[in-house]
Design a protein around this nucleic acid. Structure first.
Length: 248
DNA sequence: AATCTATCCAACCGCCCGACA
DNA sequence: TTGTCGGGCGGTTGGATAGAT
């Protein structure tokens, strides 16, 4: 879990949305789904906190947003995770750690919640059974040589250190590294980056540049071993735009 | 058939962050 | 500078279901 911060000690602010008084919880009914879908199709997404009232729902805004994002949104893909998708999740997780929304942003039609669940119920166990630490993607037993499991198939990018489970991840753009401070994927092994101090004047330029670099990097990661993956995942169109490029 | 156990995943929770007044 | 709001994130929970005994 996240380390406590000073702000955490101030106390939890309770917003109207979070108030549980008189609000329904638990599984959504088809009627509620229809109300929410109809409203969003008509009025669009946003202003989640006041949306339930406007849509005639006795739900909190967060619940509505979650239901829409993870289930009702037309672009959400249902059904089993394909082997190609699984392979992509593994590779992205090796790079990004538990940044589920970033990973989901790279897998069209899949939500962060779905990927997170799939990871926790399938992939982490799979890696453990292969003797790989699901958090670090390194062998659980350092003495043990990684038997190059099928899901971590060495790709042409094996030329990069990233594809070698025994090696630390390749340096990532600084802001990505910093973003990972919140979880412990980079558990102190990136002290060089964490200790980096950047001149403010240069920071924005550098960050813009790094967004491009990182985006290209992820794209190359995904495109590296077979075009089929790209086409199977339907990534050929609009694939160049990244979670960083798109307004949230 | 009944009970127990394991697994899955939708939903919730608490928190953080950026924008804005 | 400070407080509030809206949106989003990752971690966790708990009900439903499947499989085992």
């Amino acid at each position: 879990m996240r380390n406590p911060t000073k702000k955490d000690n101030v106390g939890t602010k309770t917003t109207p949305c979070c108030s549980k008084v008189g609000l329904k919880r638990g599984p959504w009914t088809p009627e509620e789904d229809e109300l929410l879908s109809n409203y969003i199709n008509k009025e669009g997404e946003g202003r989640w906190r006041t949306l339930p009232k406007r849509a005639g729902l006795l739900r909190c805004g967060k619940s509505c947003r979650l239901r829409w994002m993870n289930y009702l949104r037309p672009s959400v893909k249902r059904g089993q995770i394909a082997p190609d998708e699984e392979d992509l999740i593994l590779r992205l997780h090796r790079l990004l750690g538990n940044r589920w929304s970033l990973i989901a942003g790279r897998i069209p039609g899949r939500t962060d919640n779905e990927i997170k669940n799939y990871w926790n119920t399938h992939l982490s166990k799979k890696l453990i059974s292969q003797g790989i630490d699901p958090r670090t993607h390194k062998p659980l037993n350092p003495q043990q040589l990684s038997p190059s499991p099928p899901t971590l198939k060495p790709s042409p990018s094996s030329s990069s250190s990233m594809a070698k489970p025994n090696n630390p991840p390749s340096p990532l753009p600084v802001h990505v590294v910093n973003a990972n401070k919140q979880n412990d994927y980079y558990d102190g092994s990136n002290e060089d980056h964490q200790g980096m101090i950047m001149n403010n004047d240069h920071y924005q330029q550098q960050q813009d540049h790094e967004d491009d670099v990182f985006s290209s990097f992820l794209n190359s990661l995904i495109n590296e071993d077979d075009d089929a993956l790209v086409s199977n995942l339907g990534l050929s169109q609009g694939w160049e735009s990244t979670p960083f490029d798109q307004p949230k």
